[in-house]
Design a protein around this nucleic acid. Structure first.
Lengths: 345, 345
DNA sequence: GTGAAAGCGCTAACAA
DNA sequence: TTGTTAGCGCTTTCAC
């Protein structure tokens, strides 16, 4: 077989030796240049780069990974929905991964899918990754994963399983607390909670924050209504709460449910915010334009992804260093038209 | 260094030879078993599997890729937003990729980011992928990419650049046409269009479908208003259209803009659907719960991803086979409360 | 600063 | 049905 520089035909891709030959250096020197190692004279570096350019050389990552034992890639497990939160987080993770010089591999898993998160993690391990990110996990009661690469769990308790786990959270508790306090500050005696599915750690955090806010002011904690993140479940909750009576304020665990809720309340004869105030969670793009515009809290997805990845990369590259715990990001409450003081009797 | 089977400590991962030794066969036989090749006796297969299980053996993908020249992975370029459409499509692509036995690598690119799509493709090529998916691309006026792996472009004209490009579309034109026709059928004399940014091929398709529907009935084509997919831009368009007068029906290129539009119209004193009918595009989760519930069309993301990946995998594995052109998926119009006959003068 | 030699763990081609 | 022998294109180690 003949090796040809260009693509097409029966050509084979150029290798580092080809570049070396053309540049009049050893293959090892080409390797040095492409790895940005020191001890390469400026002149040699330039010659190598030119030769590589001319040949259309591309470093073969499989060979590199085989020889070095590192893939320079990070795998992420996501929960398969187009939900705004998870989708936004994924974008943040991709960016942070690329900035850190790693490639990103993605495995999606649906709730209730066989294997679940553990299966997805396995498949990443099979592919070969240097680290794993589990984004917005749910509690599958999984006997702790035993994994031999560092794992970053975004938005879950620290004790997720492996000995090499780092975590970072969006500060959902403080956000939920702030949302609840906003309603109390408006004069509401207590606040109902339309929770997300409690298998999701993200949903639990919001519940905890809500409870904490009420507890701190010695307020009664009404029974929790649990939805499934969907607007439809929010609608159902609205009907239910309206029927139960006594509701003047609701904190919904995401904006989709909040929007469904508002409509459910409306169809039951309760106006927002005149009769009932509603706060959402996420600040999805349409929140400001629904009727009434939704008061909500914004999650710092990018900051969390960045911070989390910093920890993960550190765990990969400097396993012995003490991981600095992530600081809680600031709270971002967006007050719009869906909240107001309670109705006067 | 000592090789140990388990994780932790200074252990090294077990290799195929280790499994072979334990099972009393040759290393090649282990390879055969793990590749599902024929000509392995049931007995040997079982012994190998047991040995592998016992050792915690995992096939080394880097070595496999190096030896075979194939990475068994597909790269996808996405446009970095949490927009419902792109996010849904990504999920479909991930699933289809996995079902086809490939791993998925993701590179995100923001509109206007240096390098853009071409840069993202380059980075996937550097990583080493067997095929590339470009999801919902925008027109960057890029001199056609020269790429030596098959490329699937989801939602763009066939002549995207490389000689090895396949395409699949969501049938946006027919969907847009159906949306427009729905309004005409209700009695509207003509229909305005709130378009997406025209650099996106997805936005152009919708515009084309809208035009076609009007042209087919010899209706006047009002000037197009162009938004940026955001609800905010929809709001602005609502104000603008209301000021211009003469509007009784609008087809918006996505639901976010439609929702913003409705509010913009409302703030300008026009009610939906009494004064103006609005159709969206996407059927985002909250569409059914906003006020009024949004009439919209649904894109067949999963079907398109599946179909497109079938074509891509075929191009990878059987480069010579003639790619069967994808069939246009069925139209899914969801009629809700935002559309009605035009007001009587 | 640079180079030579020895693998990394697998698959390909062929032989048995 | 199974085994043998060569690489795949890099990085590593050590020498110069």
């Amino acid at each position: 077989m003949t090796r040809v520089g260009a693509q097409g035909g029966g050509a084979t891709a150029p290798r580092a030796v080809d570049v070396a030959r053309l540049a009049g250096v050893s293959q090892k020197t080409v390797s040095r240049v492409f790895n940005g190692e020191r001890y390469v004279s400026e002149d040699v570096r330039r010659r190598v780069l030119e030769a590589a350019e001319g040949l259309g050389y591309r470093l073969n990552n499989a060979a590199r990974a085989l020889a070095s034992g590192r893939t320079r890639s990070i795998g992420v497990v996501t929960l398969g929905t187009a939900l705004y939160g998870p989708a936004s987080l994924l974008i943040g993770i991709e960016r942070a991964t690329r900035d850190a010089g790693y490639a990103l591999r993605v495995v999606n898993t649906l709730e209730g899918e066989p294997g679940g998160i553990a299966g997805a993690v396995e498949s990443l391990l099979d592919q070969g990754v240097d680290g794993i990110v589990v984004s917005e996990p749910i509690d599958e009661g999984t006997p702790s994963l035993s994994v031999d690469v560092p794992v970053l769990v975004l938005g879950a308790p620290a004790e997720f399983g492996s000995p090499r786990v780092v975590t970072a959270g969006v500060g959902a508790e403080s956000l939920a607390r702030a949302a609840t306090e906003h309603l109390l500050d408006l004069g509401h005696v207590t606040v109902h909670h339309l929770a997300g599915p409690q298998r999701w750690f993200a949903a639990r955090d919001r519940l905890i924050g809500w409870r904490a806010a009420l507890a701190a002011r010695d307020r009664r904690q009404p029974p929790v209504v649990e939805g499934d993140w969907s607007a439809a479940s929010g609608y159902a909750a609205g009907q239910e709460l309206a029927a139960a009576g006594e509701v003047t304020a609701v904190f919904a665990a995401n904006d989709d449910m909040a929007i469904g809720l508002i409509r459910g309340l409306a169809d039951a004869g309760l106006r927002v915010p005149e009769d009932v105030s509603v706060v959402g969670f996420d600040d999805i793009p349409v929140s400001a334009y629904v009727t009434p515009p939704l008061t909500t809290v914004r999650q710092p997805f990018d900051a969390v992804a960045q911070e989390g990845l910093r920890l993960l990369v550190q765990a990969i590259e400097k396993p012995d260093a003490e991981p600095a715990p992530a600081s809680d990001p600031p709270v971002d409450l967006v007050v719009r038209g869906s909240t107001a003081p309670p109705p006067v009797r």
